[in-house]
């Protein structure tokens, strides 16, 4: 055990530092991405804990770990694991392994937004999972005023082998907002907020609309702490809602 603690201590201390609080990524802590990849040759670990509450069942706990690598200029790749534990089912799920690719097409130039896209492939490693979960996300980031920014994410999701009663294709959209807090006197934190609408996977269910609010804070030259809360505020055709979802995370670059 001591050795394990020592190894984890060494790992953390050697990583303990460049993720950038201004560079916003899905899950940390809300659902939207900005249109910028991590830097070329950057390596980053992102750790997150989440708690999803539901009206009709007990909460679900999630623990997401993602590794990213700046493959080339404006491009990164990632691999993520997100085991979960369902309190109502009293069992855990190793979850799908997600492999992602992000490509920043252009930065914001004059009045034209920054544009990017990302593709994620979920491998069916989770309990009862079948087929591949594919997601294509188009991303635009544009200034709003001087320092504030809006981010539009449009998602097309597909499962290659949907289960009975499940949709093969779903769509979603997130409108994100970010605002550095404290300028011009401090430069280490960004407020984030979003409004998302996501089509349910279940045929017959409609859309879920949600809002989120969070904060990303630089805690060292290489590390960012994030915290966020999301609430599903409406659903159509009986789609399941999560009244509150908490997320807390820590990202380090090295």
């Amino acid at each position: 055990m001591r050795r394990l603690l020592l190894i984890s201590g060494l790992l953390l201390s050697s990583l303990a530092f460049a993720s950038d609080h201004n560079n916003i990524e899905a899950g940390r802590p809300l659902r939207f991405d900005d249109a910028y990849s991590i830097a070329f040759r950057e390596r980053a670990f992102e750790f997150g804990l989440s708690l999803d509450t539901f009206r009709r069942r007990g909460p679900t706990y999630g623990n997401k770990t993602e590794f990213k690598y700046g493959l080339a200029k404006n491009q990164d790749i990632s691999v993520a694991f997100e085991p979960t534990y369902s309190s109502s089912e009293r069992r855990g799920d190793i979850g799908n392994v997600e492999i992602g690719y992000f490509n920043g097409l252009r930065r914001e130039i004059d009045n034209s937004p920054a544009l990017a896209y990302r593709v994620d492939v979920g491998l069916p490693t989770g309990r009862g999972a079948k087929g591949l979960d594919l997601r294509f996300r188009g991303i635009a980031t544009k200034a709003l005023g001087q320092y504030d920014k809006v981010h539009l994410n449009l998602d097309l999701n597909m499962n290659t082998n949907p289960g009975p009663g499940e949709r093969r294709h779903t769509v979603g959209a997130v409108l994100g907002y970010s605002k550095p807090l404290g300028y011009p006197r401090r430069f280490d934190q960004t407020l984030v907020a979003d409004f998302a609408i996501q089509q349910s996977k279940n045929e017959g269910d409609g859309f879920v609309g949600s809002v989120g609010l969070g904060l990303r804070r630089q805690v060292s030259p290489r590390a960012v702490f994030d915290i966020g809360i999301t609430s599903d505020i409406f659903s159509t055709k009986g789609a399941e809602r999560s009244p509150v979802r908490f997320a807390i995370g820590y990202s380090v670059s090295f």
């Binding site: 991590i38 070329f40 700046g70």
Partner: peptide, 11 residues
Amino acid sequence: APGADHLFYKA
């Protein structure tokens, strides 16, 4: 070139 082209420092 339109990219942001962020570069990371030498590890």
